[in-house]
């Protein structure tokens, strides 16, 4: 299978630019990254179809390998439509984010920050059990308590 080297280089550049933009914090740049990446992928699909040939309309005199492979083009068409829908949705989201907070940067998750800063001490689980708050206080018949009285303060004290 032969491929077009120019297309491959362009594709590489598109991927590099796209992934770089994808890592930005500004949503608009992320969106641009997605668009650029999408086009890079389309070029990849195009190159996957092999070399250029005749239009894929049936002609008796033409051998099978002389046709251009039409399938990748169909795939690209579908991919373009999908990227289009996603781009439209993201634009709407960026606009909404702008309306709400006048910013198009991705902010940190507050709950994440809170969890990472919370103390390892948990009041309910880690606080020492108070000694004197037994619920049976008062109604314990002292005569029935086993004769452990002398060392009773041992383990619980």
């Amino acid at each position: 299978m032969s491929t077009n080297i120019t297309l491959l280089i362009v594709m590489g550049v598109l991927f590099a630019v796209g992934f770089y933009l994808l890592l930005e914090r500004s949503l608009t740049r992320v969106l641009l990254g997605i668009v650029v990446l999408g086009n890079g992928v389309n070029l990849l699909l195009l190159s996957a179809g092999g070399r250029r040939g005749q239009a894929p309309l049936y002609e008796e005199s033409l051998a099978a390998e002389d046709y251009t492979d039409p399938l990748p083009q169909a795939l690209i068409l579908t991919a373009i439509v999908i990227t289009f829908a996603v781009t439209a949705f993201m634009l709407a989201m960026i606009y909404r984010s702008w309306v709400i907070s006048r910013a198009d940067v991705v902010t940190d998750d507050l709950e994440d920050l809170r969890v990472s800063q919370q103390s390892t001490f948990d009041f309910e689980e880690d606080s020492p059990v108070p000694e004197d708050t037994t619920e049976f206080d008062g109604d314990v018949d002292l005569d029935l308590v086993p004769v452990k009285k002398p060392k009773g303060k041992g383990p619980r004290a």
């Binding site: 997605i34 990446l37 992928v41 990849l44 699909l45 179809g49 399938l71 795939l75």
Partner: peptide, 12 residues
């Protein structure tokens, strides 16, 4: 996009 790239590679 990664999935689509994989599909392109597989087709190639």
């Amino acid at each position: 996009l990664l999935f689509l790239i994989a599909i392109g590679m597989i087709y190639a």
